[in-house]
């Protein structure tokens, strides 16, 4: 039982770090935002695991739901429409780096 829980913790923690990293580093903005929404969902699970049901509820509604909707609406606004062009270079939409 403890082993199982430990394994679950390991998976949850690793997927948080993995999803967070890929949300920041995928070349495609749309894919980044989708990863971030997934990150929010995993976060809600972690809150439940840490005996914080209040936060889990709020995270599911805010972190995954609302923030996700906000991000997708913003993407639509800057003309990144997602599915169609996964190869779109990140640098094309971004400022040159200093």
């Amino acid at each position: 039982m403890n082993l199982l829980l430990g394994l679950a913790d390991l998976v949850l923690g690793a997927s948080l770090i993995g999803l967070g990293w890929s949300a920041l580093c995928t070349r495609d903005l749309f894919a980044g935002c989708v990863r971030f929404i997934a990150f929010g969902l995993v976060m809600a699970l972690v809150w439940a695991r840490l005996r914080a049901p209040d936060i889990a509820l709020a995270e599911a509604a805010i972190g995954a739901g609302l923030t996700g909707a906000l991000l997708l609406a913003a993407l639509r606004g800057i003309g990144v429409s997602g599915w169609a062009r996964p190869g779109e270079d990140r640098d094309a939409t971004e400022e040159p780096r200093p």
Binding site: L57, A58, G65, A69
Partner: peptide
Amino acid sequence: YLLWRGTDAPGGALQAGAVVAAAAVAWQL
């Protein structure tokens, strides 16, 4: 339910508000 039970069980004003907002967003879409 969250608003009503929030004083005794998990849930409360912030969560209830967030859920209503999520519902409103779905409705807006």
